[in-house]
């Protein structure tokens, strides 16, 4: 593999990691507050459809982003309603949200566009265009650093940079603000937060809403950045890979970036090479498909560094009387 090919694979890694990263950070906020979220997939899917549909009809990708995020927040609200207000099972609620999105997007797409459950291809103004960073062209011919800057760092759509910036922002919010401290506390010991006179319900709704926004951006990027339009089931398990990355990173933002880049890299490799010939034996493409999940099970098993979720995760909070 020569230098340029390696760069192209890494470039594709960055693009494929972005939706994983945004969804993973969404899950991070939600689960740090004690609300399990296996509905990341559904929220991304709903956002992908509504962003593509509105971007197509309005001709503005920003309107699309707004609509996609709104759809994702609506599903977050259902999740919050079921698991915070009515203290239902958070996992079952997540499953329901995934199916709700999978069904609704196709039914509505068929009704609006009549193209077999997809949106029409988006015109250029309906998509996020790539941004060329300053001096990218000028520095192109500088050896090593030039191509890295031109190919890898420059030339992505704005949402890729949003995703990358979301990592330090998440870290800062969670670990350097009062809100973040409370949010983490509510996921570990909600009774303590309640005793301090801070609303457990309010904090958890805030966390779930942030998760909705991030999933919304992730979905919008899928349909209007990575691809040009919505197709049925286009998230293709990315929400679950994000969930895997979340566990892999043990609920920490910088590690989440690492995990998402790793899983994005696996996707990029699988996309570029079908089966990898290693001389003695070939690695079939399905190994790359399954790798994130296998790695997550290994991490969960605790043989390589144990993954311990927030203590109050999954438990509805009942005020003591």
């Amino acid at each position: 593999m020569d230098f340029l090919t390696a760069l192209q694979v890494l470039d594709s890694t960055v693009r494929l990691s972005t939706p994983l990263l945004l969804a993973c950070l969404a899950g991070l906020f939600s689960e740090r507050s004690g609300i399990f979220d296996i509905g990341l997939e559904g929220k991304m899917l709903a956002a992908a459809f509504f962003s593509a549909a509105v971007a197509f009809t309005s001709g503005s990708v920003w309107m699309g982003l707004l609509a996609g995020t709104a759809a994702s927040i609506a599903l977050s609200a259902i999740h919050g309603f079921a698991s915070i207000t009515f203290r239902g099972n958070q996992l079952i609620s997540g499953v329901a949200i995934n199916f709700l999105a999978a069904g609704t997007t196709v039914v509505v797409a068929q009704s609006w566009f009549a193209q077999g459950g997809r949106t029409p291809s988006l015109p250029p103004e309906g998509r996020f265009q790539t941004i060329t960073l300053p001096f990218a062209e000028a520095l192109r011919d500088v050896p090593i650093a030039g191509p890295i800057y031109h190919e890898l760092i420059s030339g992505h759509s704005i949402l890729v940079y949003v995703g990358l910036l979301a990592v330090p922002l998440t870290w800062w919010v969670l670990f350097r603000t009062r809100f973040g401290l409370r949010l983490r506390a509510v996921g570990e010991a909600p009774e303590a937060v309640d005793t301090a006179g801070i609303s457990v319900v309010g904090l958890r709704y805030a966390a779930v809403a942030i998760a909705g926004v991030l999933c919304g951006i992730a979905g919008a990027y899928l349909a209007t950045g990575l691809q040009a339009g919505f197709v049925k089931d286009m998230t293709a398990g990315r929400g679950f890979i994000a969930l895997a990355a979340l566990i892999f990173s043990k609920w920490r933002p910088w590690h989440a970036l690492g995990a998402c880049l790793l899983f994005g890299f696996l996707q990029a490799i699988a996309l570029r090479y079908q089966n990898i010939d290693l001389g003695a034996f070939t690695v079939p493409v399905q190994v790359m498909d399954a790798a994130p999940y296998i790695l997550t099970v290994v991490i969960l098993a605790g043989f390589v560094g144990r993954a311990i979720p927030p203590r109050a995760g999954g438990e509805p909070y009942v005020k003591e009387r």
């Binding site: 698991s83 009515f86 239902g88 499953v95 199916f99 709700l100 999978a102 609704t104 039914v107």
Partner: peptide, 14 residues
């Protein structure tokens, strides 16, 4: 699938 989701939502989570 929508009906299935609603059944799961109402009989399970809600």
């Amino acid at each position: 699938v929508v009906i299935q989701a609603l059944v799961i939502l109402f009989t399970g989570a809600l």
